[in-house]
């Protein structure tokens, strides 16, 4: 469990009005940006349940886009994000849906560009968020840790190859989770790290045979 801090109570410094619906939306956008890495040409946001019902009144729509463009939760650009040059260069759409199977504050990012990607996340309260799905894979990315995300061919020895490269840098693994769409097909690995990882190790991991995709998702600032 995360050690609680004084600054869990007196923070974040943020653009109002809602920690879950505004700050949470920005942080989901920031995580989606780190996962997608390049700027998408087109994005469709699907807002669910409470996000759909009260999102506009809370600036959830603006927050999601601002995060995707890399603005922090306290940026004064969130309010006027639709007027920024980036917004003019990007095609973006919003859809609003009700689905009781989804979290009350859920969103899907459909990102199109050099690659296409579907990222799903939830705003779970007090500005805390989680990315629960990328394409077909379930994930648990909260932005509280530096997280390494891999897609690779499901075969024996992959976890040990990756973890030994991480160990070489003397970095402690806080948690590790894997998922796969079918035996022998594509699998995903989510590794939470206690410190940040060098680009040389990331390159070595990228060079492992049958690793398709690697992202170093640095933790979000409070």
């Amino acid at each position: 469990m995360k050690q609680k801090s004084l600054f869990d109570v007196i923070s974040p410094i943020m653009t109002g009005p809602s920690s879950s619906h505004t700050a949470g939306a920005v942080r989901l956008g920031l995580l989606a940006r780190k996962i997608y890495k390049s700027t998408p040409k087109k994005v469709t946001f699907i807002l669910y349940n409470s996000f759909a019902q009260t999102g506009k009144g809370h600036g959830t729509d603006k927050g999601l886009l601002a995060g995707l463009f890399g603005y922090s939760v306290e940026s004064d650009k969130i309010k006027t994000i639709f007027d920024t040059p980036q917004a003019k260069e990007t095609e973006y759409h919003y859809q609003f849906e009700q689905n009781t199977d989804r979290h009350p504050n859920a969103v899907d990012f459909i990102l199109e560009g050099d690659i296409n990607m579907l990222i799903s996340g939830n705003s779970v309260g007090a500005g805390n968020v989680e990315i629960i799905k990328i394409d077909d894979f379930s994930t648990q990315i909260t932005g509280e840790y530096n997280t390494l995300l891999l897609f690779y061919k499901d075969k024996p020895g992959m976890i040990s190859k990756v973890s030994s490269l991480i160990q070489e840098e003397n970095i402690n693994i806080a948690s590790l989770e894997c998922d796969r769409n079918a035996k022998g097909k594509t699998a995903s690995m989510c590794i939470c790290l206690d410190s940040s990882i060098s680009s040389s190790v990331i390159q070595k991991i990228e060079n492992i045979d049958d690793v398709y995709f690697v992202r170093n998702i640095e933790k979000l600032e409070v």
Partner: peptide, 15 residues
Amino acid sequence: ENLRMNRIVACPTAG
């Protein structure tokens, strides 16, 4: 200021 989407400190929450 909070409901105008300006900057505040959530203390403990924005509301």
